[in-house]
Design a protein around this nucleic acid. Sequence first.
DNA 1: GTGAAAGCGCTAACAA
DNA 2: TTGTTAGCGCTTTCAC
Lengths: 343, 343
Amino acid sequence: MERRRDRSPTIVDVAREAGVSKSLVSLAIRGEAGVGEASRERILDAARRLGYRSNSWARSLARGRSQLVGVLVNDLRSGYYVDVVRGIEDAAQRADLRVVLGEGRRDPAITGARIAHLQQLGVDGLVVISGRVDPQTLAQAAALCPVVVVGRPPEVPVAAAQVSNDDRAGARLAIRHLVALGHRRIAHLTDSTRPAASDRRDAVLATLEEFGLGTRGRVVSADGAGRLAAAVAARDPDAPTAVFARNDRTAVRLLGAAIDAGLRVPEDLSLIGYDNTDVAGIVRPTLTSVDQPRLAMGELAMELLTELSAGAAPRREVVRPELVVRASTAPAPGWSSPGARPD
Amino acid sequence: MERRRDRSPTIVDVAREAGVSKSLVSLAIRGEAGVGEASRERILDAARRLGYRSNSWARSLARGRSQLVGVLVNDLRSGYYVDVVRGIEDAAQRADLRVVLGEGRRDPAITGARIAHLQQLGVDGLVVISGRVDPQTLAQAAALCPVVVVGRPPEVPVAAAQVSNDDRAGARLAIRHLVALGHRRIAHLTDSTRPAASDRRDAVLATLEEFGLGTRGRVVSADGAGRLAAAVAARDPDAPTAVFARNDRTAVRLLGAAIDAGLRVPEDLSLIGYDNTDVAGIVRPTLTSVDQPRLAMGELAMELLTELSAGAAPRREVVRPELVVRASTAPAPGWSSPGARPD
DNA sequence: GTGAAAGCGCTAACAA
DNA sequence: TTGTTAGCGCTTTCAC
């Protein structure tokens, strides 16, 4: 009963062609020890002649694993995720694993569906790079296979490992940089209450307080970017001279609004983003931003995944962000020499 | 011989629990007809109780296909590819297929490896969205499963279907727009000789010629963006007043160089990109760009793939680009009223 | 070093 | 409507 007229060759065909048993072919093809030099030669040769291609469905079925790691990213348009993925891919390659990718499109429902799909595929492990994933989705996923979370979703199952950056430290870097430049009215532009965002916000307020710079009205919703720019343009005495946005996306949107409002950046308004994505180097002025070591985070994620698969307890790693100073930040208007550095 | 201590339940377990045979379970779970209402109920119930999850390796192995379509994109950072993927995913969902994604990182070698990997996975079909793929790679791929190419690699195997946009038409749109704005010295910024790029270039030159606007020195290499900006800034009488770049990436790089050189865009220099990616709306001034209907192209690709899988002959579809006018193009310096439109 | 045989979990023909 | 059985292509004991 041949299903397909010209089925592709199997180890049985190779075995017949080489005049050996199929078990030997299996060993030879995987490069296992315990095959005579002569047989090995004949087998590999026969395989080549026949154009043999190993069937991964059968292999996975027989071995009970696939050598596949699934990676779910929140949004492919953001260079942030893509860089983490590359870190993962590089590490995976070294571990002789293959990566399959899925995108959640910033939607928890789609994210859940894609995660289910990846697990359906039979991945040996899963890396979820998204803050937009329901705790329940994540818990279910972690029950099925090793899971590493990169970033900070609302909740991380106890069984899962995690890689994240120190958001409080990152926010402090940004605020201290602005204070050092003489800024006194500093606003934080944010639109989210998820852990990363709220930590950044808390750290902003704490740091402002530390410097005795009132915190009232210093947190602005991201959709108020236009109003904020207008206020600065109108020389509102309460308007900030510098803004730290929760990420580059938000910062770039404000930059657009500021330019549209006729402001000069950084002369009239300094601006800092977060994530140091490629767009930060593309816009003008180029954007000062807090950098997360994305490639390293990806590689770290694979490391944690490997540990988990080996049965180790899940670890949580926090990496340190760094400030990358570009052209969007300058001394506050009227600020001359920066006496003692505030830090 | 149990390999894993707590192996997950199989149809056999479900069958035992429901007191029926495993074939009936198989039918019931897939929702096939020919299962008694009572049995179906009992089976699904048992499956739920046991937490049964169908094993896709076994299913694929038994059925000879995976319901998977592989998608290879050139570069995930570009919104262009991502949008095409979304079109594909939407169409795939309707056809009850799942998408697995791979990235070629703008490198033919990596692209080849990823394509091989996707086929190793046993995809039923493959969509390659990349101009950066070797003819040989593509030919090998097309020999293994149905392949649809989106875009214009150097060569497309006869067995493969293709979706592309009319690059000549797109280039004409751009040039005509600039001519209509009174520009007479128009340059084309390009750095590639692959089919799409060279068609755009040819169409640019042909269109300039059509309008009697000399073509000498009108094609500038992309890495000459800085020099070009400098020439404009120096008021070189030969310098262009408008530039059509081969894509948004290149256009945005030139925009940066222009701003860095102290130029005002579009007052001193008009600028058009190609692809209408998200970055076009993000930079300031916003970028006029030639739009390819990416979502539709993705859906079309899935359509062609379905046809191919059904045994139809491969088709080549060419879609029409459109010009999206934004803020980076303005009348040429000294140009007053645009008499009769040149088109 | 090599071969025989029993699975892996599922589908699909065929019988009942 | 339901059960039986023979694969799908590979891995992995266990004999030889």
